[in-house]
Write a protein that binds this DNA or RNA. Structure first.
Lengths: 217, 217
DNA sequence: ATCTTCACCTGTTCT
DNA sequence: AAGAACAGGTGAAGA
């Protein structure tokens, strides 16, 4: 349901970009920090409900594959799931969020731990929270509403429709690789996001059954 | 807590009558449809709160005995309780309401499913919702504010303070039987509602332990 | 007593 | 039109 069907046009609440930063670790290990998704937080996301609603397609694309490891009952393995994020500003601070699925509203949420992040970063409605990863390491950052986005052009130039190749790498994370046009884009599953066609490349070996299921739905 | 203690004065939201209709089933099975209670709904009952506050004494008399079956933890058995009602107008429509106790407000409520009834019947503040039963079958109906009540006198004559004898019949349901005065009213437990003293008559044999408990509290 | 967390629930909106 | 998604809610339990 995530990739084969035409995704709904973005509601404007989320943005997908190609920002690539560097994730430094003490030992000097250095990897590309790759953007997963943004969400412009709603009043509820930063209010007394103490939860962040994670847009379903992002949850299923980025978090479920990691959390649902092997076979068996997916829902039960999701129970009690915790996602750990490093603070995107560096400084070694880390954040742990309980991640769950609320079946009554059919939505994914981060609950326990989320309000601490809201408080600490003084997150307000309209601000943007960004999720990155570098390999299996997860990062979270945020920026004030209206703040300039790194690498974004000063003038909002809409890119000509292009394709972003989405491949699967060892480890649970898919690796978005920006290309400036669609030459050599594999036939088959792709979806359009903000006028960009995202193409799913042939999956390399370690694509779990669950991920396949998630991708095929 | 319901009957022995002096009940709070009625808020004006409930009325009790002795209307008896017939509940027809396809097979021709026919039973008396006996009135349990009415409630004049408040703005909150039909508003965004999506719940109907069930007057405590009615909840304890009519719904708890059915829902709290055997032994064990009563509160836990109430969790997730659903009451199913047939539409009082016939036509086979049915309504299911989640029934719960809100300890924060010490009140019994119908929640899930209630708003559908409000919508469907265009229930408005001041209207009256009526609950009936025929054996174990439950019925719900409503009438517009100011609508003539079946068997009610055309002129709104306030009855002289009288007593309504409440007896118990086989099955979980007590049987309200209107009498026009208080001759022969049993001594003991009664309460006043709208200037009418409701008297609990001696229970006949098949009164369940739970119902007895509910009545004794 | 208060705050957080959890597991539900629903109306609106968009597809 | 019907359904999915989700923003905005709830009570209950526990810390």
């Amino acid at each position: 349901m995530a990739l084969t069907a035409a995704l709904p046009e973005s509601t404007g609440a989320e943005q997908s970009q190609g920002v690539v930063k560097l994730a430094r670790r003490n030992g000097g290990e250095e990897r590309r920090r790759e953007h997963m998704f943004d969400k412009v937080v709603t009043p509820s996301d930063v209010g007394k409900l103490n939860r962040l609603v994670v847009p379903k397609h992002f949850a299923e694309r980025y978090f479920l594959p990691q959390l649902l490891g092997g076979g068996g009952n997916a829902a039960s393995r999701l129970a009690g799931a915790v996602l750990r994020f490093e603070d995107g500003r560096g400084g070694g601070k880390a954040w742990a969020f309980r991640f769950s699925y609320w079946s009554s509203s059919q939505s994914y949420v981060m609950t326990k731990g989320w309000s601490a992040f809201v408080r600490d970063r003084r997150l307000a409605a309209g601000d943007t929270v960004s999720f990155y990863h570098a390999g299996a390491r997860l990062f979270i950052d945020c920026r004030r509403r209206g703040a300039r986005v790194a690498l974004a052009p000063a003038t909002p130039v809409l890119p000509a429709p292009s394709r972003v190749l989405v491949t699967s790498t060892p480890g649970p994370w898919s690796t978005p690789c920006s290309t400036s046009d669609d030459v050599g884009a594999p036939r088959g599953r792709f979806f359009r996001l903000f006028g960009v066609d995202l193409v799913l490349a042939g999956a390399e070996p370690p694509l779990s059954t669950d991920l396949q299921l998630a991708l095929m739905r």
